[in-house]
Structure formats: C-alpha cells, structure tokens
C-alpha cells in the first residue's frame, strides 16, 4: 500500500483529485487518538457524502489494509508513527503540507524542522518519499533533506 500525506486530510483535492480517480472505497485517516471531535465529525460527514467508508485510527491501532483503501496521514510525524507501529507501506506520497514557516520542498509542501526530521527517519528506514499533487502526474523525489 501507499501512504498519502496531506495536512488538510479529507478535502477537495483528496476527494476529487485522488479518491474518485483511484476508486477509493475506504479512507483510512491516521490521526492522533485524541484528535479534535469536531474535525472527526466533519470528516465523517464528508466521507458519507462521497459514498465512502471512513476509518479514523491512531498509528498503533490502524486496521488491516484492503483493496479500495486510500491511506492518509496529516503529517510526517503521523507517517513515521505508523511505520514505527509496524505498518509497512511501499512509499509515502506528499500531496500537501502547508506549514507557515519552514523549508519549501515543492508546490504546496513546506516542511518545518520536526517534519524534516520525521522524513529523514523514514528515508533512513528505506521508505521512498515523493511529492505528487495528483495521481496522473509523475512523482518527484524530494530534494535532499
């Protein structure tokens, strides 16, 4: 499986640009266990509208992957936590990461120091990290971190 990364989680680009094109039937959002209840409720409503199932899971309680899944984390820290919890993914696809300050790694991708540390750790673990805005674009490797 691939893990996608977008700090906005379930929003327009994910739903229309990725999910519909890839035929996503279930969105798995890797988020902190104590995530904001209002946001959880919004994501549930959005997934319902899209006709897809939604699973909100902490990194150490993620479900088993299945066909039609679209896995999504809100930042490199969540991606690293998922990896460290033993869930293996083929690659990490950075779609959007919009920090107010940090290093610009590509369109819609600005990483702060904590993000960079987590991405370095993932790369050191052998995870291929690429940036890609839409599924029909070629993925580009991240610049040296």
């Amino acid at each position: 499986m691939d893990l996608h990364l977008d700090d906005r989680l379930l929003h327009g680009r994910i739903l229309h640009g990725w999910g519909r094109r890839l035929g996503a039937r279930r969105y798995v959002l890797v988020i902190p266990a104590a995530g904001d209840p209002a946001r959880r409720a919004v994501y549930a409503a959005v997934a319902r509208e899209a006709g897809a199932e939604l699973v909100l899971a902490a990194a150490d309680a993620a479900p088993a992957p299945r066909a039609g899944d679209f896995w999504l984390a809100d930042g490199p820290a969540a991606a690293l936590a998922l990896w460290r919890a033993g869930r293996r993914y083929r690659r990490l696809i950075l779609i959007g990461l919009r920090r107010s300050a940090g290093r610009r790694l590509g369109p819609d991708i600005t990483a702060d120091e904590a993000d960079l540390d987590a991405l370095r750790a993932l790369q050191a673990a052998g995870v291929g990290c690429e940036r890609r805005r839409f599924p029909d674009e070629a993925g580009e490797p991240l610049p040296p971190l």
Partner: peptide
C-alpha cells in the same frame, strides 16, 4: 464554495 473542501471543513469545525 463546496461541501467536502477544506474551506467548508474549516467552517463546519467551528460552527458548533
């Protein structure tokens, strides 16, 4: 603009 987008998500989160 549309339900499901980041703008609507942010508004919905704040509405309660």
């Amino acid at each position: 603009d549309y339900f499901g987008g980041s703008c609507a998500n942010a508004c919905l989160t704040l509405l309660p």
